[in-house]
Amino acid sequence: MMKKILSCFAILLVAGATVVAGDVDLEGVTCVVAPKPATEGKSADYKDGKVYFCCGGCAGKFAANTKKFATKANHQLVATKQYEQKACPMSGRDLNPETATTVAGTKVAFCCDGCKGTVEKAEDDEAKLKLVFADKAFAKAFKKVSAE
């Protein structure tokens, strides 16, 4: 019973934070929780940006356990151009444009071929996402796009 109450509360909390996006292009962007297209109608505040979901149920799951979905949420912040890459996610060093590659549909670059190779050799897309967009790597490499 307590789980149901907490789940309902989490859904209401996220629903209250849901806004219609202004300048975010969601073409090809998937929900942070489920492998379905994200919609403008369901979003939540996250790291000075917004993450988008396919439905209210996914929004509730995210609100209940943000840490579980952090890697995909970080990836979505970059995919929606709310954050941009400023450094290598592996080392934190300056980027070498010649090392650019695509990770889960998002262009990323590294400081050297060694860092790029580490990501390219990862077992699968999920492992690559974790290497580039997990909280520690994300904090090293990506910054909020400033409004100009």
Rank of each mutant, 00 (worst) to 15 (best):
M1P: 08
M1N: 12
K3P: 13
K3A: 10
K3Q: 12
K4P: 01
K4G: 07
I5A: 14
S7F: 09
S7D: 05
C8W: 11
C8Y: 15
F9W: 12
F9G: 03
F9D: 00
A10C: 11
A10D: 13
L12K: 06
L12G: 13
L12P: 04
L13K: 09
V14I: 13
V14P: 00
V14N: 00
V14A: 15
A15W: 04
A15K: 10
A15L: 13
G16C: 04
G16D: 03
G16Y: 09
A17S: 03
T18N: 12
T18A: 15
T18F: 11
V19F: 08
V19I: 08
V19Q: 05
V19T: 00
V20N: 01
A21H: 01
A21Q: 13
A21T: 05
G22C: 06
G22T: 13
G22Q: 05
D23G: 07
D23K: 06
V24C: 01
D25F: 07
L26A: 10
E27T: 14
E27W: 03
E27L: 10
G28Y: 01
G28K: 12
G28T: 02
V29R: 04
V29G: 10
V29C: 02
V32M: 02
V32F: 12
V33P: 02
V33E: 02
P35C: 05
K36V: 12
P37I: 03
P37F: 12
A38G: 05
A38P: 03
A38Y: 00
T39N: 05
E40Y: 02
E40D: 09
G41I: 10
G41H: 02
S43A: 06
A44C: 02
A44N: 00
D45K: 03
Y46F: 14
Y46W: 15
G49H: 03
V51E: 01
Y52Q: 01
F53Q: 09
C54G: 11
C54K: 03
G56E: 05
G57K: 11
G57L: 14
C58L: 02
C58E: 07
G60L: 01
G60A: 02
F62H: 11
F62C: 03
A63V: 14
A64Q: 13
A64W: 09
N65A: 14
T66P: 08
F69K: 03
F69C: 02
A70C: 07
T71G: 07
K72R: 15
K72H: 11
A73L: 10
A73I: 09
N74R: 08
N74F: 08
H75G: 06
Q76C: 14
Q76T: 06
V78A: 10
A79W: 09
T80G: 08
K81D: 14
Q82T: 08
Y83D: 04
Y83N: 06
E84W: 08
Q85E: 03
Q85M: 15
Q85T: 08
K86A: 14
C88S: 05
P89V: 14
P89R: 12
P89I: 02
M90V: 15
M90E: 12
M90C: 04
